[in-house]
């Protein structure tokens, strides 16, 4: 497939991204660059100085709502993508409503409890929608422990063990690997569709 054919195909699809932090912001930018048609992004947070070590924001955006700042950044890269940005804290009720028309959902939350919530919700409400989780991204090095596991419509990217702690923070390189692995999994699914 040429890049032109890829862009034409991707233009038809919508991806939902649950969270606009380290995983979500980087995954969204990668998908926008390759020509996805539409993104639905939801996050309740504002850009903080501590986010700049890994998230796709700039210093002059400190204090801005993450979804607003991310929409602006993506539109500077690809003005053709349609972005529905929601400044909202996702829960098991509103996520069903916001993501019901998405072809794929990317989980990009921070807390493990939230990851579990979206898996349980999607497997019940959207059993046929692929869901791509990020789990185990903190620290540095150990690139080869990061993998993507598939179990029916559930995909899990990460090393499944590196938890964020004070002495093992999430950092741009490893978070970027997993965020881009999630984006790459989206491409694999969409470009294989008949």
């Amino acid at each position: 497939m040429t890049f032109n054919e890829i862009k034409i195909k991707l233009k038809k699809y919508t991806v939902g991204i649950a969270g606009a932090g380290g995983l979500g912001s980087n995954c969204a930018v990668a998908l926008a660059r390759v020509g996805l048609g539409k993104l639905v992004i939801a996050d309740f947070d504002v850009v903080n100085e501590t986010n700049l070590n890994r998230q796709y924001f700039f210093r002059d955006q400190l204090g801005e709502k993450k979804v607003t700042a991310l929409k602006k950044n993506i539109e500077r890269i690809n003005p053709d993508i349609q972005i529905n940005a929601y400044d909202i804290k996702l829960n098991k009720n509103n996520l069903v409503h916001l993501f019901k028309d998405c072809d794929i959902i990317v989980e990009a939350f921070d807390l493990a409890e939230m990851k579990q919530m979206i898996i349980e919700t999607c497997m019940t409400k959207f059993p046929d929608k692929p869901l791509i989780i990020g789990s185990g991204i903190a620290g540095w090095g150990k690139s080869n422990t990061i993998k993507c596991k598939k179990s029916e419509n559930l995909y899990i990217c990460g090393d499944e063990e590196s938890e964020t702690t004070d002495n093992n923070p999430p950092l741009a390189p490893r978070v970027g690997i997993v965020a881009n692995m999630q984006a790459n999994t989206v491409l694999e699914i969409l470009l294989n569709k008949k």
């Binding site: 989780i133 789990s135 185990g136 991204i137 990460g158 499944e160 938890e163």
Partner: peptide, 10 residues
């Protein structure tokens, strides 16, 4: 049987 680990970080 599939068992997946969920760990905090994002």
């Amino acid at each position: 049987v599939t068992v997946l680990h969920l760990v905090t970080g994002g």
